[in-house]
Design a protein around this nucleic acid. Sequence first.
DNA 1: CTGTATCCTGAGAGATACTG
DNA 2: CAGTATCTCTCAGGATACAG
Lengths: 133, 133
Amino acid sequence: MKPDDLNPAPVAPARPGQHKHCPVRDVLDRLGDKWSTLILVTLAQGPQRFNALARSVPDISRRMLTETLRHLERDGLIWREVTPSTPPSVRYGLTPLGNSLMPPLKGLIEWAQRHQPKILAARTRFDGSRRKA
Amino acid sequence: MKPDDLNPAPVAPARPGQHKHCPVRDVLDRLGDKWSTLILVTLAQGPQRFNALARSVPDISRRMLTETLRHLERDGLIWREVTPSTPPSVRYGLTPLGNSLMPPLKGLIEWAQRHQPKILAARTRFDGSRRKA
DNA sequence: CTGTATCCTGAGAGATACTG
DNA sequence: CAGTATCTCTCAGGATACAG
């Protein structure tokens, strides 16, 4: 493989004061946060309303759900559709951009599922050999 | 007493009992942390010594470098080879498992690079339309 | 050179209560 | 129903000093 592909932009310092944005960091940070990925894969199965999402993603608080949805919307990964009825209803769904993230994300998810046993085994091995005397 | 950094997943749901540990979460949490991906990508270009890594990943502190390397080693993604010379030298490199992560990871990185302009545009649009009156 | 041990701060995230 | 507003607490992670 071409090494250069794996050594993309000089990685941003990610430090205060200097925000040279590394696009990769940008994406991975979002994926790394606690709920974004969960919401994305949930929405990948079809648009959902706010409360439906809250139910699909157990243990998420309203606050975090709102916040995460806003982030994803801001990044153009999901859309938000308000129907001003009474009571109001709001639907969320993946944009084309959001959908385009799914294949690579799926790749990662599949990797995770396939290799989880190996990871768990490695941890056990590591912890075992590290057991304090 | 200091909390052991290598203790079992602290990332589990805040509420114990409710939700099983999701393997995907497991992986994404690691990728989401600040340095793991950078180190993996760097090591994908070949084994490196501790200080070489520190130089390749600017702005990482020794503490975080050590800690991240330990995590990755524990998960079986990288190996660690100590040569007890004076001064000692330690090399790190990807294991086969670590290498198997590269393709999906690379997929994500490429997505990020390709779509960054769209994301930035979406943000500008969002922030613009949200400007409070 | 390759780490460990502490200390400290700030962002992330839970609980709760209120509003349109 | 779909959010917003606080308050608080934890903990990732930076700085620094020490150690084998």
